[in-house]
Design a protein around this nucleic acid. Structure first.
Length: 813
RNA sequence: GCGGGCGUAGCCGAACUGGUAUAGGCGCCAGAUUUAGGAUCUGGUCGGCGCAAGCCGGUGGGGGUUCGAGUCCCUCCGCCCGCACCA
């Protein structure tokens, strides 16, 4: 009988669903395991990349359940976002309709994988049931000052008359993705979440086991730097001063110029009449240049002298003030001290404008010659007045102390991280629950008035402007404070708000008294294992850590980190080696492979092609190998249920070894998510069973076959269930059977191959008892004819015995 | 430019803390079965020389440490991924 994947898979999927065997119950006495996989965006169609992310995590879920855990493995949809709105604008489909139709299609595709998802816990973030709590969290943050409104530069498309999300600004030329117009920066009132309040805590990864790579990315993104901020007075302008930030106060005596960002508020005031023309021209140029151009290293650093001089507060030396676009208004104070000898950028700048480059930190063995490059390391302080002779790290502290003592500066920590701008001038998102009243100002929507529903009857303009801005029914509202006519905020929230806390909603998706049921929270939280792509390292994965810390401070949870362990799987590229995308036409759908080979084969193949963390280009050539493997397993088991060959005890010990050895390998591999080698081990085992079939005694044979099915079940759940229940006559369900345990004694081979080397080169291999003593191994080696031949009468200088592996005879002469 | 990762048969990839390089699969070759093809099964498959036993070479290149290096160190080459004037 041949294995009919599509019939078998559909049958078991229906039965599992009907029995609810994948629904995790809160009161279960087993230890809990909360496994979370990044939820998909409902773009319309599942591709094999989704399967690559999800099928192995389903194997984790199944393996953990077999190991005795009460596993929760939820699924949902990240349903707000731009593509839905673009579909509305381009094709006249309402974003809600577009999204829900896509979700319906993707649910069917996801179900065909046969994963043990807990569907009753499904969440859809565009449902008011979900986004109400986005608004609730926002108000909570507003109450404690973590949500605030401020003027901020945003990317603005002048043609479409709207702001753009970061993703909508494309190419090096930074153009609008819809109309190709170059975007400009525009200052707008925007809502921010104060993630910087948690910057230092977010740098602490001591409570989580996350990949080094993600920790590094987050650390760099946060970009903490420690230094001194101090005042620099302007010469001949009593009272005029600006502040600079430096991480190298020890180099302050080497300052030979200062640079302000072109947009610095003091520039106009300080620029002298004769320099004004050139300064204005430079400012104009800088304002037009995109960030990319501005920050490009290709471009030569340039700037303009503004005619004024600053006074070095430490030695009263006057230095010229420049503006240059390598100084950013958005970092530090928007002004720097130029120390060319000890900063590479300042060095280039000084070279270009023939400014002096005095050395103040002497490199070891420095002969007093001018520097060829900026010297950035530590050294001995010179030309630094009273600080001469000090090692620079000591001088660092002394100068900082001196600035503090004189009241002109203080120690400061700066971050590259900015507060999280969540305002989107978009329809398809969570409305920000704020009201603007002429009398009362900014007034939050009262909690009892939540949710602020997104109106369905929206008119989508080709310009891309948010329909909310023209929706009178939405806009007009009575001020909750004074009752006067007021207007709603029309901006919606960044969709990363949704994903910052979705894991909590899975606990109790219909809960109405809060974002989640605290009792369920005490049972399930935090997430034990999270899996997903590394592309979310600095956005989602940082935001969700921030959100959890806020929730902790609000008293909602009693821990600091949302997910204890994180695994980043690789990505499956299109057959052409590029990222799959509809526009490239290289999207590979799982459906045709499911139809042709079955879900188990596709799952197995995706797990077999290589390490899960690697990903790689899709190639369907090898899928036949997995199909053949499953067919062999099928034949092995279904035929084993029939008549057996007469018993012989010849290979009993060896078969027993293979049973236990394979349990050990597969168990270890599954714990480490090494699916490819787990499957390789099962293939080897299957090959061994095929050879042993004729001679194995029935009880051992049956154990061996049951073990094969039990080990295969987390990877290929349907075929394993079919074999277990229908052909081995075992109790439903294989997915509730305890994970097989190995006996370490039996998992050890009786005989081993001992490798004999002479001077590190393999000269012979001999079969010996596994427990051979070092002394005996040594004797065997020295007596071996091959070894003697290669010794060729030379003196044996040393014999190295690696127990259970090899003997290396070291000869001299 | 800085930081990180990687480089193993024709292809995807194994190789624990240095200890038989190439497990498992794809592909290919041969054989069995078959009217044939397909499917299935069995065997082979890193390169060179050899009838063979075997010998020699071999993990991007070069050098080093070691009894022994895919693994450790130095250096160069190539690919990928971050960050990109953060003062």
């Amino acid at each position: 009988m041949k294995y009919d994947a599509s019939a078998v898979e559909a049958r078991w999927q229906a039965r599992w669903e009907a029995d609810g065997i994948n629904h995790a119950r809160d009161g279960d006495p087993r230890p809990k395991f909360f496994l979370l996989t990044m939820y998909p965006y409902p773009s319309g169609d599942l591709h094999v990349g989704h399967w690559y992310a999800m099928a192995p995590s389903d194997a984790v879920a199944r393996f953990k359940r077999r190991c005795g855990y009460n596993v929760m493995f939820p699924i949902g949809f990240d349903a707000f976002g731009l593509p839905a709105e673009n579909a509305a604008i381009e094709h006249g489909i309402h974003p809600y309709t577009w999204t829900m139709e896509n979700i319906a299609r993707m649910r069917r595709q996801l179900r065909s994988m046969g994963a043990m998802w807990d569907w009753p816990r499904e969440i859809v973030t565009c449902d008011p049931e979900y986004y109400t709590w986005n608004q609730w969290f926002f108000l909570k943050m507003y109450d404690c000052g973590l949500a605030y409104r401020a003027l901020a530069p945003v990317d603005w498309c002048p043609k479409d008359n709207t702001t753009l999300a970061r993703e909508q600004v494309v190419g090096d030329e930074r153009v609008c993705e819809r109309c190709g117009t170059p975007v400009i920066k525009k200052n707008l009132e925007q809502w921010f979440l104060k993630i910087t309040a948690y910057a230092d805590e977010l740098l602490d990864f001591s409570q989580i086991e996350w990949p080094e790579r993600v920790r590094t990315l987050q650390t760099n993104w946060i970009g903490r730097s420690q230094g001194v901020e101090f005042e620099v007075p302007v010469r001949d302008r009593p009272g005029a001063r600006f502040r600079v930030f430096t991480t190298r106060p020890d180099t302050v005596y080497g300052m030979t110029f200062c640079v302000l960002a072109p947009e610095h508020p003091l520039v106009d005031e300080l620029t002298t009449v004769e320099r004004r023309g050139e300064v204005d021209a430079y400012k104009f140029k800088a304002a037009r240049a995109s960030d990319i151009e501005r920050l490009s290293t290709e471009k030569e650093r340039d700037g303009v002298f503004i005619g004024a001089y600053a006074i070095n507060p430490m030695n009263q030396a006057p230095v010229p003030i420049y503006i240059a676009d390598y100084v950013l208004l958005t970092y530090g104070t928007g002004a720097i001290m130029g120390v060319p000898a000890h900063d590479a950028r300042d060095f280039d700048f000084a070279r270009k404008y023939a400014l002096p480059i005095p050395v103040v930190i002497a490199p070891p063995g420095w002969d007093g010659a001018p520097l060829e490059h900026a010297y950035l390391d530590e050294g001995t302080m010179v030309n630094s007045g009273p600080f001469d002779g000090l090692p620079s790290p000591v001088g660092w502290q002394r100068i900082a102390d001196e600035m503090v003592r004189r009241g002109i500066g203080e120690r400061r920590v700066n971050y590259r991280l900015h507060d999280w701008l969540i305002s989107r001038q978009r329809y398809w998102g969570t409305p920000i629950p704020m009201i603007y009243c002429d009398a009362c100002g900014v007034v939050p929507v009262p909690y009892q008035d939540l949710p602020v529903l997104l109106p369905h009857d929206a008119e989508f303009r080709p310009t891309g402007e948010s329909p909310l801005r023209y929706h009178e029914g939405f806009l007009n509202v009575a001020c909750p404070r004074c009752g006067a006519a007021a207007r709603r905020e029309t901006d919606t929230m960044d969709t990363f708000v949704d994903s910052s806390w979705y894991q909590y909603r899975y606990l109790s998706p219909r809960h109405t008294d809060g974002p989640f049921d605290p009792a369920a929270g005490r049972h399930w939280l935090p997430v034990d294992q999270y899996t997903g792509g590394v592309e979310h390292a600095v956005m989602h994965l940082l935001y969700t850590r921030f959100w959890t810390k806020v929730m902790r401070d609000l008293g909602l949870v009693g821990f600091d980190e949302p997910m204890t362990r994180l695994f980043n799987q690789g990505i499956i590229l299109g057959p052409d080696g590029n990222r799959m995308s509809k526009s490239r036409g290289n999207v590979v759908s799982p459906d045709e492979f499911v139809r042709k080979y079955g879900a188990d084969t596709l799952r197995g193949y995706l797990m077999f092609i290589g390490p899960w963390a690697e990903g790689g280009p899709w190639n369907s050539r090898g899928i036949e190998g997995i199909a053949r493997f499953l067919a062999r397993v099928w034949a092995l088991v279904t035929e084993a249920a029939k008549a057996r060959a007469p018993e012989t005890a010849a290979s009993e010990r060896e078969l027993e070894y293979w049973v236990h050895h394979t349990i050990r390998r597969v168990t270890d591999d599954m714990e480490g998510f090494r699916w490819n080698t787990a499957i390789a081990a099962l293939m080897e085992y299957t090959n061994v069973l095929q050879r042993a079939r004729a001679t194995a005694p029935a009880p051992l044979w049956n154990e061996a076959v049951r073990t094969l099915v039990l080990l295969l079940a987390p990877l290929c759940p349907h075929v394993a269930e079919e074999l277990w229940v229908e052909h081995l006559g075992q109790p439903y369900s294989v997915h509730d059977q305890p994970w097989p345990q190995y006996d370490p004694q039996k998992a050890t081979a009786e005989r081993i191959t001992l490798v004999l080397q002479v001077n590190g080169r393999v000269r012979d291999r001999v079969e010996v008892e596994a427990g051979i003593t070092d002394a005996l191994a040594r004797e065997v080696a020295l007596a071996n004819p091959k070894v003697r031949q290669y010794l060729n009468g030379r003196t044996v200088a040393d014999v190295i015995v690696v127990p259970g592996r090899l003997v290396n005879v070291v000869a001299r002469g």
